[in-house]
C-alpha cells in the first residue's frame, strides 16, 4: 500500500495550524513529530496508560488512539499550552510540584491534562469520583497519593473553598462507619 496523505487544519494550544499527515498517523505522532510537542508521551499506544492524554474540544482523549486526520477543525491543548507566554505555570501544574506529585514525570503531562479538565469543570467531585475520573492514567511511581491531593486541593481552590483545600492533609486514616457495599 502506498502512503496516503491528507491536510489537517486545527488549533493547537491556541494557534491555528495546517499540517500534511500520513492518514495512518495517530494524533500522538502528529503532535510529537510534526509539532515537537514532546509532553505527549507514548506509554502503550493502545489507550491503556493515559500518558498521551490531550484535551480535544474541552474533553480529555488518549491521543494515541485518535487519528491525526480526525483532528480536522478541532481545538487541541497539550501540556505545553497550559504554561503562559511568560512561562507562568497554571495552578494545577504548581500544585503537582508543591504536593510532590511528580517523580519520574513520565505520566505527569497526561495526568495534568485530565486534572486540568477536572478543576476547570466547576464541579465538586467526591473522593471516589475523583479517583474514578483519574483512573484512566497509570502511574508506577507515586501510588497516586500525592496526585490525588494536588487535584483535590486545586479543585477546591477553584470553587473558592480555600480553607477546605488547606485541610486536605498529607495522610489520613479513613474511619468507615460500617461495612460498605462495593462501588
Amino acid at each position: 500500500m502506498s502512503k496516503q496523505y491528507k491536510v489537517v487544519h486545527c488549533t493547537i494550544n491556541g494557534k491555528e495550524v495546517e499540517q500534511i499527515v500520513d492518514v495512518r498517523a495517530s494524533l500522538t505522532d502528529m503532535l510529537r513529530n510534526d509539532f515537537r510537542l514532546t509532553s505527549v508521551k507514548k506509554g502503550c499506544e493502545v489507550g491503556e496508560c493515559g500518558a498521551c492524554t490531550v484535551i480535544i474540544d474541552g474533553e480529555g482523549f488518549n491521543s494515541c488512539i485518535y487519528l491525526a486526520v480526525w483532528a480536522e477543525g478541532k481545538e487541541i491543548w497539550t501540556l505545553e499550552g497550559l504554561t503562559g507566554p511568560g512561562g507562568e505555570l497554571s495552578d494545577i501544574q504548581q500544585a503537582f510540584i508543591d504536593e510532590g506529585a511528580i517523580q519520574c514525570g513520565f505520566c505527569t503531562p497526561g495526568f495534568i491534562m485530565t486534572s486540568w479538565e477536572i478543576v476547570n469543570s466547576g464541579k465538586e467531585y467526591s473522593d471516589d469520583e475523583l479517583r474514578k475520573l483519574l483512573s484512566g492514567h497509570l502511574c508506577r511511581c507515586t501510588g497516586y497519593e500525592n496526585i490525588f491531593r494536588a487535584v483535590k486541593k486545586t479543585m477546591l481552590r477553584h470553587l473558592g473553598k480555600f480553607e477546605e483545600a488547606e485541610k486536605v492533609n498529607s495522610q489520613g486514616i479513613a474511619d468507615y462507619p460500617e461495612p460498605m457495599p462495593f462501588m
Binding site: 514532546t38 505555570l89 514525570g105
Partner: peptide, 20 residues
C-alpha cells in the same frame, strides 16, 4: 522538604526523555 530540582520542568512537560 526541598522541591525536587526537576519538578518544575516536568510539570511543564519539557523534560527530555530518550525518545524526545
Amino acid at each position: 522538604a526541598v522541591t525536587r530540582h526537576d519538578a518544575h520542568d516536568k510539570a511543564m512537560g519539557r523534560i527530555k526523555y530518550t525518545d524526545d
